[in-house]
Amino acid sequence: MRTKCKGKSTVFFADPPRIISGGTIVGDVEAQGPLGGYFDIALEDDTWGEDTWEKAERKMFEHAVRTALEKGGLTPMQVDILLGGDLLNQIISANFAARELEIPFLGLYGACSTMAEGMLIGSMLIDGGFADRVACAASSHFSTAERQYRLPLEMGSQAVPTSQRTVTGAGCALLSGSGCADKGSLSNVCIAGGVIGRVVDLGITDAANMGAAMAPAAADTLKRHLFDTGRTVEDYDLIITGDLGSFGSELFLMLLNDAGIDAGTRHLDCGNIIFSAEQNAVCGGSGCGCSAVTMNGYILPRMDAGEYERILFMATGALMSPTAGLQGESIPGIAHGVVIERR
């Protein structure tokens, strides 16, 4: 029976799971950015001593989970389910990291929306009585993403004015049911509810303009959530989007404005704050790691300290495929939302 739903697509948990800790690892460029000091581990070199960037990314994924577990005072054996994914084909980073962690694993692919997707499903599993503790993780790596989706790194080409830089980073949020008396680095934040995103596609075909491809999905998710709950933007201290970037954010606010919603003062985009203007990221950061490290390293600890009471975190994903792109297809977007409250 649908007992925990509000409206068509918003869910609220009977017993909201707590986020007890977060683990974050970033590459050297992210570490030099404005949020550099907030992350647990900063790499000096983006191969992290491995032969390939792919191996480095899976190691980052694994260690983001291990760091979150350490900060939550738990071992992998005590975690019931690992949820996570990344941007690479067959989500290899998550799969190989799960092999090392030996936690029962459900792989997710939501492109850059994976962090929110994991937190939403993880909370459902805990509130549904299927798990006590769930680790939700996501990773992305600039060098692995470039070679899979774009051009070789040493190829001399110019950045398009709407392009974004994939964040090298992995983040993990550790969720725990209220029945467990776990004491982690975070003690006051819980996931009160969420909203499952729809795939929205307004026909953007330019793979160098992902903000424009994702903005309609983010606006759709927010509009449906506000409609379901009867809430307004003012009920949230922050409306956080994952990686719309500066141009995508502008379009997101434009689409909300069309619906009579003014989110301007409360909107924050992780892609807009992770790099500084001098770091040549053009429109900002992107990738699963962008929202994963910004949320777990920067936003949640600040919320725990009392800065915000209630936020809506919507990680945005551009579900693009190089094959579909070459065949002239547009880029579908998706955004999942989680309502995080301080209790």
């Binding site: 307004l202 026909g203 141009f247 379009l251 429109c283």
Partner: peptide
Amino acid sequence: YQRRVNERMPKS
């Protein structure tokens, strides 16, 4: 939407 994206897009 596509028309508005093209209008507002930062240009090379």
